[in-house]
Design a protein around this nucleic acid. Sequence first.
DNA 1: TTCATTTGCTAACGGGCGTTAGCGGGCCTT
DNA 2: AAGGCCCGCTAACGCCCGTTAGCAAATGAA
Lengths: 202, 202
Amino acid sequence: MSAAAPLRPRKAQIDRTATALFRAQGFAATSMRELATALGLEAGSLYSHIKSKEEILHRVCFGLADSFFAGFAAATHETAPVAEQLRQAIVAHVRVLTHDSAASAVFLHEWRHLSEPARREFLALRDRYEGAFRELIARGVAAGELHTPDPAFAALTLLASLNWLPNWYRPEGKLTPDEIAHRLAEQLLSGLWPHRGSTGPA
Amino acid sequence: MSAAAPLRPRKAQIDRTATALFRAQGFAATSMRELATALGLEAGSLYSHIKSKEEILHRVCFGLADSFFAGFAAATHETAPVAEQLRQAIVAHVRVLTHDSAASAVFLHEWRHLSEPARREFLALRDRYEGAFRELIARGVAAGELHTPDPAFAALTLLASLNWLPNWYRPEGKLTPDEIAHRLAEQLLSGLWPHRGSTGPA
DNA sequence: TTCATTTGCTAACGGGCGTTAGCGGGCCTT
DNA sequence: AAGGCCCGCTAACGCCCGTTAGCAAATGAA
């Protein structure tokens, strides 16, 4: 599904710098001149490497979508208890979010500046991803491993909690990404009521 | 804290229309000419009512902050079990989010286009609000009514789940705002493990 | 050596931006 | 009838936008 021929280094650097700016200021509020300056270039020079401003956004958004799908697939194609698959999917999701939190923030917030038909395609991918979590949870409920009155609701809540991460995650913080992931999973699976030990259902 | 002298009706209408546009396209990508057209005006005419584009954003962001604080205060100043106060705070938060989901979306996403010092002030308010939830949860843990390894983490997760609501809430949907609030509270308090009935700790 | 590729420059294009100045008509109050 | 306000208009200001054209220096392969 992904493929992604390796970008020339300069192009990759443009993407990285643009991603940081898009995250900090938003896509619309970031100008090509600003991006060029951050790279030590003139504005026109950017167009030796890219076709348009939106092309950068497109690559960032769809590239990250690929990462999320790849992580989910790797976490769930094995035959394990569904609750464990869900936990692994959470870990995979958090790994993507923490591995490139700037791109993740752009992925989460700036996709609306994609023009059609890319925007529609992006939303379809996002829906599909969300649906995968929903179905995983539904399978867990059917198997008696999970409990919720509404799997769709639960999936929404779960992803919302995870996706807030790029807003506060700091790579130099105390917790490693995997520790964060497990703590998030713990929180989401166990809730806030006091009831039992922390490693799973009795 | 709030005060808020009632705006003249035309000004309030500008705020409402701008809020809808800011939500749909983002602050930076919404032009004053576009806003004027949506109101059946010419661009210059807007300035009979407002001082600047940012003034609108400022009013929306800080007005909603007031609403959130007012809701929280009303939900928690009584002497009730802490877990119940938390539930009420969740309900209050969701009421604000659903009562004006467009303004909420702007509040959540567009505050970064405030210039200093407003931006810093806004973030201080947001931190204070988050801190109030954190302390409420911490009190609940101390009282043995709640359980979490990390109240700060729990507050982050909780608010993230709630704040995703404006992205999918539709006023014409099947669930009323209060039903949504209770379901969210249920989900967040109970988690996804199967363990017991749905009304609280044993 | 030659030649294509990569990379960057300068200059400019058409157009949109937020905002202001000045004007004029309605409308309410007195 | 008069004065003041509310409201909207037209025209324009200086500035920044994304993008393109054309050119040149460096680089590396043949």
